[in-house]
Amino acid sequence: MDITILYGTETGNAEMLAEDVQSALEDAGHEVLVENLSDVAPADLDVSRLHLVVCSTYGDGELPASAQPFGEAMKDAPDLSGLRFGIFGLGDSEYETFNMGSQQIEEMLVAAGAERIGERVTHDASGDDMAEDVALPWAEAVVEAVGADA
């Protein structure tokens, strides 16, 4: 399957996780591109590819720095009907606004007509799990759901 992983990061943790997901999916035989949301405009999204979004939260529930231009551009979003995406959030439950960054991206994409595959899954930096231990099963499940559908 042709898959694009988009990441929104502030400290680099989401970028590292995106690379982990890429390696795992490539090992499973998929063709995977990884892009920083800072380098992507909503109009560039290729609806023929499955998109996996990995996004953290920063400050007071805001988008991380690298996702902010994308968030701005989504205010004037093109029609994204046909785009299928899975979404994974990174956050820290020490803070009340835990994982609101990924929630914002999800809402923007859905409002523009894109279809979310599976539930939004989140990781808690203050929890006991490693992010990749939560994210890899998520990515596999999203890919499987799309594969079963095709």
Binding site: T11, N13, M16, D92, E94, D124, A125, S126
Partner: peptide
Amino acid sequence: ADHQGTKGIARQFER
């Protein structure tokens, strides 16, 4: 010491 989530960036440095 009670912000262990923030210390998670050390995993990047390990790599």
